[in-house]
Structures are given as C-alpha cells and as structure tokens.
C-alpha cells in the first residue's frame, strides 16, 4: 500500500468523509430542484432538500398488508449505507480512509449490491407497481453492469493494479480520461444506472406510479431517496481517481481538486437528467449488449496494447 503514495487517514476522519458525502448529496438535490423550478418558470428550490427531508421526517411510517417489511426496510437502508462504503476507498488528494489492493473490485462489489437493494425495496411492499419497478431495475442491471465492469478494468490495466491509489499514481502527467474516453462515458452510464437516475429511472417512473417508490413514505422513503443521491455522488467522486487524475491540478491542494472535479461531474449528471428521456429496459438491453459492451471491450484492448507496447 505505501508505494502508491497514499496516506491512510485516521479512522476519525470517517465522520468528516460522511458529512462531506451528505453535503455533496445536498448540493445535488438543490441543483436538481432549482433546475426543475426554473424550467417550470418559477423561482425557488433552494431549500428543497431541507423541506423535503422535514416533510418525510414528519410523516408517519406506513406498511402495506402482508408486506415483507424486513426485506423492504433492508433495501432502503442499504441504499443509504452502500454509498458510504464506496467513499471509504476514494482518496482526497493524498489522504484516504482505506486503500485496499482491490479497491476497484470493492467498488464493483458495492455497486452490484444495489441490484439486490432496489429489487428488495420493490419486492417487499407487496404492491404490483413496486414489484414491476423492482424487476425493471434488474432488467436494466443486466444491460449496464457488464459494460460498467469492463470500464472499471481499463484504468486497472493501465495502472497494473486494482488499488485506487496506484491508479491515481499512474495518471501522473496524463489523465486516463484522455486516452480511455469510451471507458469514462460507459462508466458514467453505469453510475446513472446504479443510482437509478435520469434515463435509468424507469424503475421509479410515473408510468407505474413511482414503481419502487410507490409504497414508500416517511423515513423509509427518505433513506431510499437519499441513498440514490448518495450513490450518484459516490459514483461521480469515484470517477475522479479513476479517470480524472485524482487530486492533481495547479494551485489548489489535492483534496480541493478532488472536490471540484466531483462537483463538476455531479453537476453534469444532474443537468442531464432533465434532458435525456427514460431509457426503457427493453430498449436498452440491446444497446447495452451490442453497442456499449463491444465498444468498451475494444477500449480495453487498446489500453492493454498501449500498456504492453509502451511498458
């Protein structure tokens, strides 16, 4: 671990990292609410995260007849917790909470867990709308997950390591996004996928009355929805060490650059949500397998050829 130049921060910093993560999610909610309000021709939206959270905290919990309550709640709370697990391996400049040899695989493990979490949230409610929503997400997962995995492999090939710290170190001078743009884009598609965000939100869409969200109320809804935003933030933040050179940049300290880059990626993802229509799973399945997957495999091939010939 030390050869990557990362400094393992004291575990006490976990609290700070958690607050930072929540703050970024707060920014994302605000941005989305302000953009929505502006598009409808009204002002406001600036206090949206506060008032929405207050509303849900005040609301009474609710369970449906013969619901699978345990699994249902596990799904919602799991979404909230999962994002924190990703953030633990994201370096802020030189500092990181944990830099395991297999940081990228760890990220992959957590993002696959989302399959179960979203599906459980849909299943547990014992309601047809949410059940359909839960299965819609699985169908999406089948299509976005493999391209995402191959996109994650590209930086690992270039760095010759699955450790996030090593990947950052390997980008000294040239960011990976420059010579693996396809992997970067496919990675962002994956991030929107596991955040059930924007085009990948048919599982929560209006046509099935909110799908997975249809029966969620009060704090259960709050943790699930917050979890989605937290995953969006964690996904955006993980793209920084993976493709955007980590903390490298002039003037500002490393950790500040990580924040700036994260917010930039996050803003793009939030902004795109309003522009891109829903990508229904039955339409996306072919795209995922026949376009994204071959494209990112070719990207991996190019990366490994460059590495082998250059190294």
């Amino acid at each position: 671990m030390p050869e990557s130049g990362m400094v393992i921060a004291a575990v006490g910093w976990a609290g700070v990292a958690g607050i930072l993560l929540c703050a970024l999610a707060y920014v994302a909610v605000t941005l989305d609410a302000v953009l929505s309000a502006r598009q409808l021709g009204v002002r406001g939206g600036w206090t949206a995260p506060l008032s929405r959270a207050a509303r849900l905290l005040r609301q009474r919990q609710r369970t449906t007849v013969a619901a699978d309550t345990l699994l249902w709640r596990v799904g919602g709370a799991g979404m909230f917790i999962g994002a924190f697990l990703i953030v633990a391996v994201i370096p802020m400049g030189r500092w990181v909470l944990a830099d395991p040899d297999v940081g990228i695989v760890w990220f992959n493990v957590v993002d696959v867990m989302v399959w179960a979490l979203v599906w459980l949230t849909g299943w547990g409610a014992n309601s047809t709308h949410s059940l359909v929503g839960g299965y819609r997400f699985l169908a999406h997962g089948l299509a976005y997950e493999l391209p995402l995995m191959f996109a994650l492999v590209a930086p690992a090939i270039a760095a010759g390591s699955l450790g996030v710290g090593d990947v950052v170190a390997a980008q000294d001078g040239l960011w990976f996004v420059v010579w693996m743009p396809v992997a970067f884009l496919v990675y962002l598609v994956g991030v929107t996928g596991f955040s059930v965000w924007g085009p990948f939100a048919p599982a929560l869409a209006a046509d099935i009355a909110g799908g997975v969200l249809a029966e969620l109320s009060a704090v259960d809804r709050l943790v699930f929805q917050a979890g989605r935003y937290l995953f969006l933030v964690a996904g955006a933040a993980f793209s920084v060490p993976l493709f955007l050179g980590g903390g490298s940049g002039p003037v500002l300290p490393g950790w500040a650059w990580v924040l700036v880059k994260t917010v930039a990626v996050l803003a793009v993802l939030v902004w795109l949500r309003r522009k891109v229509p829903l990508v229904r799973p039955d339409r996306f399945m072919e795209i995922g397998w026949m376009v994204l997957l071959p494209a990112v495999v070719v990207q991996d091939l190019l990366v490994s050829l460059i590495v082998v010939s250059g190294g």
């Binding site: 406001g44 609710r62 709308h129 009355a209 909110g210 969200l213 249809a214 029966e215 969620l216 109320s217």
Partner: peptide, 11 residues
Amino acid sequence: RGWCAAWTPAD
C-alpha cells in the same frame, strides 16, 4: 407554492 403532485397516496 412549490408543491408537487404525488403519484401515490404513500407520498
């Protein structure tokens, strides 16, 4: 008022 439509009674 900044109010939105709910899609289901839960919300």
